[in-house]
Amino acid sequence: MRGSDTGPGRNVIWDWRAKEGVGTRAPCLDFAPYRYETIDFVLYGYESVGMAQREDAFSYADLAIAGDMTKRAWQHLADLNARSPDPELLPDRRNIEMAKRAAVIGGFAAAGVPLYAAARLAAALVYNEFNTIDGEVPSGLGSLARGLPRAAWKQIPSDSGDNDYWFHRALIRHRDIYTPGQALDSDALVQIVDRTHVYVAVLSGTPILNPWDSAKEPRSYAGRMDGWGRDSEVKFTSASEMASHDPENPETFSLGARVNETARAADRNAVGRITVNVSLAVRNGLDRIARHRGHMHPAPNAREVAS
């Protein structure tokens, strides 16, 4: 297999020469969109061993590292998704969306949410609450990347689009802009109250408009999770499924107001809360992948060690 990428001042070429099952390659320069790797899974419908793989595509090992979980745990989630008649736990391709999802699932799991419930919740929140270009939770990397010098932007592959992997890949070389393990004011938070009620917020405390009474509140009610700890029964019902936000529909809007009041009471009388910074979870997951691939040095300070 032979592949090449041309860009400003670079020409990267790989050669695959089958010789007693061993492959050889030319050196892979930094920021080339492809990396050489022997893989043992089906990637985008092509089963192959020894191929030039896009650097922003991920193996099961990569995804497990992003989620800070074992490869077996990730394989279990992938198997559950594959066996489902209507797969919805995971994105359908092992690209940046899948890596971000793995990191968020790992963030929930690290906070004590059972693995399957974490995957179910992550999928539901992505669908109902967040509206980023890649369809996953906001990472804040795109905003940070605006501060990169022009030379750094030239090293990002021209066909990458708004891809958080490449933003992160550039940012880790600019510690004056990006500090691994550090939260940002714009980070999205998910709060789970009494293992049931789910809210979303912004770390900075930016008020969020309540659709049922036009009030601005520090967090927004996302919905209800039932079946905590019972994999086959885990279900998330979004607030919009419970009742309409449309004031032109008096009956369902009134129901929505009651749902909203129930959510406020649950928040006020909470026994236990779990708060997960899902944006930071994504950045930490990409940091782990970068360290695994040798793109970042081991964490040099206490903050990064904690991440």
Rank of each mutant, 00 (worst) to 15 (best):
Y116C: 14
A117H: 06
A117N: 15
A117S: 14
L121C: 02
A123M: 00
Y127H: 12
N128A: 10
E129C: 07
I133L: 10
G135S: 05
E136W: 07
V137C: 10
P138V: 07
G140N: 10
L144G: 09
A145R: 13
L148N: 04
P149T: 06
A151Q: 13
Q155W: 02
S160K: 03
D162A: 15
D164L: 05
Y165D: 05
R169I: 08
I172Q: 10
R173K: 10
R173M: 06
R175G: 00
D176M: 04
I177E: 00
I177Q: 00
I177N: 02
G181I: 00
Q182E: 15
Q182P: 02
Q182F: 08
A183K: 09
A183Q: 09
L184Y: 00
D185I: 02
D185R: 07
S186H: 03
A188L: 08
V193L: 10
R195N: 09
R195G: 08
V202N: 06
V202C: 05
L203A: 14
G205P: 01
T206A: 13
S214I: 08
K216E: 14
K216N: 06
S220I: 04
G223T: 12
G223I: 12
R224N: 01
R224H: 05
D226V: 15
D231G: 05
D231R: 08
V234W: 03
K235A: 11
S240H: 11
E241G: 03
M242H: 13
A243Y: 08
A243I: 12
S244C: 14
S244V: 13
H245P: 08
P247A: 08
E248L: 13
N249K: 15
